[in-house]
Amino acid sequence: MDALTLEAVAVGPLREINLTVRSGEVVCLSGASGSGKSRLLRAIADLEPHAGRILLGDLRQDALAADRWRARVMLVPAESSWWGSTVAEHFLEPVPGSLEGFGLSPAVMDWDVARLSSGEKQRLGVLRALSRRPRALLLDEPTANLDTATTRRVEQWLRSHARREGVPILWVAHDPEQISRVGDRHFTIRGSGLREGGCRTG
């Protein structure tokens, strides 16, 4: 698999963002509300107009049709949206072992979307993206609605998935402990740029 590279990306308040997430690496991103984290993820998924170059391996974002880029570089938003009536309608083939790894029973695929809890929706939102076999993942606070035990399971599964498949993951997180558990590296948004390393306030 390939690295995800940002070269001089500018979107919203952010300017000159340079960042490489290597194959199999988890990079955490934090920053205050409104600092532009979500907009940066949206720009990487090409859902928001932006300046600069974004590459997956040698492949430039603008060299691919937008839908094909998004099928490779997949964004999982903090709030997932559901349109069908059952869970299965939103999935391609689930990644083997991923449901169990996320603490969900395989029967969840037959459930009504209407009866899902917020925690189930959040986990299924990530799994739904994984079922399409993306080559890079952008996760916007993927464990915000989960209890501690489930959060740990999801973290471990995603980390080992990144290693196993060589998928680069850019993970927006606030909890410093979570960042130290899952992140190989960590960046904080300060003003218009990124700063490597922690911020005590989370």
Binding site: L75, E79, S80, S81, W83, R132
Partner: peptide, 14 residues
């Protein structure tokens, strides 16, 4: 709009 963007994020054509 959330549903439409949710589909776009999964790599669907507009």
């Amino acid at each position: 709009s959330q549903v439409i963007e949710g589909r776009l994020m999964l790599g669907m054509h507009w």
